[in-house]
Design a protein around this nucleic acid. Structure first.
Lengths: 105, 105
DNA sequence: GCTGTATATAAGATTATCGGAATATGGCGA
DNA sequence: TCGCCATATTCCGATAATCTTATATACAGC
């Protein structure tokens, strides 16, 4: 049986990934650590918006961060998150092709 | 590069899993197909609420459904969704134990 | 200490999600 | 056909997520 805090953490993890900006941030960081100032220009959103997205990923236990001087460097905390993206992408791909076959929606 | 519809589908998949009831429905169905009338009593929620949760999972491409008489039978469409739950659970577990170690929150 | 740069947080408006009650749809048996 | 059962959908209120602007914090260099 799944304990309640674990279920809650699962929900938080999936919720953290249920946003296109946050998925792209994970993909970006899977290529190596980045400070916020390097992440910002990849998105046409305010600094505060990106900062909050990073916090959501951090609080879900998906990212690590360390401070170096006046910068904050974010990194992938658990490589399994990349697995999650890959698995979801393959489900997405299969689903999209089944929609094409059946002409569904 | 990830195509836009695929990213959108990933978002929809993760969004579908970002709810404790929907996670429990997946776990329930991983034990075998069930009609709605068998799923309902597992949750203290109205019929319309559960029906909506099932639709969300169905539209995310995670569940299949077939009609038999006046019943609708739901089933896991893609076994990879169970993988997603397991991977997220192991991330959750690691994160929770790291919180215990550091006394974090 | 002051100024500028980097980042996080708060406040507030807008939009999406969740839940239940009520309603619609469609098969089934009398 | 009529009424019942199983399920989906609509409507609407309550709650939560997202975004921007403005403000706070904290380090760096002078």
């Amino acid at each position: 049986m799944l304990s309640v805090p674990r279920l809650d953490m699962q929900v938080r993890i999936f919720g953290a990934l249920a946003d296109p900006i946050r998925i792209k941030i994970i993909m970006l960081l899977s290529g190596g650590d980045r400070c916020v100032c390097e992440i910002l220009p990849a998105f046409e959103r305010s600094q505060s918006t990106i900062s909050k997205h990073l916090s959501i990923l951090y609080n879900a236990g998906l990212l690590d961060r360390r401070i170096e001087g006046n910068r904050t460097i974010y990194s992938i905390k658990n490589r399994k998150v990349v697995e999650l993206l890959e698995t979801a992408d393959s489900i997405a791909l299969e689903h999209l092709s089944s929609l094409v076959e059946t002409g569904g929606d």
